[in-house]
Nucleic acid binder design. Structure first.
Ligand code: FES
Ligand code: FES
Lengths: 145, 145
DNA sequence: GTTATAAAAGATGTTTAACTCTTTTATTAT
DNA sequence: ATAATAAAAGAGTTAAACATCTTTTATAAC
């Protein structure tokens, strides 16, 4: 596995796709999202359910219903998705798995690991979910391969 | 979970402890290592068995036997431990879980994620297993809490 | 209000990672 | 040789992550 859990990877890809669709004024169904971001449909349903519960995305049931993100949601950082799925360990935890990370009682990796962790955090916090859509729309980046 | 798997965290802590002991000229038993780095003893046994198979550490059976690291092993980078346990995905994989990471067909995170990944790689590759012992011996860093 | 649509909710199943136990083999000391 | 020690090897268990299936609820169109 990579840095994030598989569940989290699905979530990020899905949210990006929903964001893009929302900016085009469309709601999208689980089925469509699952196809476009290559994730198992029923599992993605559960993930989106959770993201919806914490208010990161919105949805409406029934015909022409589906998932979308309101303008407030588009302003939120990508970090919020990761936090909702994988928790804060990745932003604050010790690289060697010690119970807690501290300056006073650091592990051998601490000094360097802290930098990596900080860079990861700032990358996820500095960019909002909505900001990626320009890139996506003009086709310079992709959500599937 | 953090950036590395739990198994990998145990492995790194254990290898550091073994390295320290080796530089003091002692072999150490699974029991001792498990206590000192806070890992489940039988599980750690399996992990060390694997590291031993790939030649990262050495061991001898019987009385006064145990694990140690030869001078060659001490020169190897920490990255080798991570690679042996978690695989190369963490060094090369796409942050959003796309099948492969590429410059030509990048995901939205690619540009920034690449930097994080590179920093992580260089951190793990630049320092050898043996280099940590000075810090460990003088007590400025720790392997348990 | 009936029907169609689509997500929510809840229960269930599968796979992988984490962890344990038992038996065997190698080494050393007596 | 025998007994003691410690890892290797292999089989087995448990828990968590990943994934599916079924039923219910909300919404919209007719
Ligand atoms: S103590 Fe290990 S990363 Fe800070
Ligand atoms: S394509 Fe996603 S990190 Fe490179």
């Amino acid at each position: 596995m990579g840095i994030f859990s598989k569940t989290c990877e699905y979530a990020v890809r899905a949210v990006f796709y929903i964001a893009q669709s929302s900016q085009e004024g469309r709601k999208v169904s689980i089925k469509e999202i699952a196809e476009k971001v290559k994730s198992p449909e029923p599992f993605l349903g559960k993930i989106l359910q959770n993201l919806s519960k914490v208010g990161l995305i919105q949805s409406t049931k029934g015909p022409h219903g589906g998932f979308f993100i309101d303008p407030e949601g588009l302003k939120k950082p990508i970090a919020d998705i990761v936090l909702a799925i994988d928790g804060e360990q990745i932003f604050t935890g010790c690289g060697m798995g010690l119970d807690y990370c501290s300056e006073k009682n650091p592990c051998p990796l601490h000094h360097d690991f802290k930098k990596v962790r900080n860079q990861l955090s700032s990358m996820l916090k500095k960019t909002s979910i909505g900001q990626f859509n320009l890139q996506l729309i003009k086709g310079s980046v992709t959500l599937y391969k």
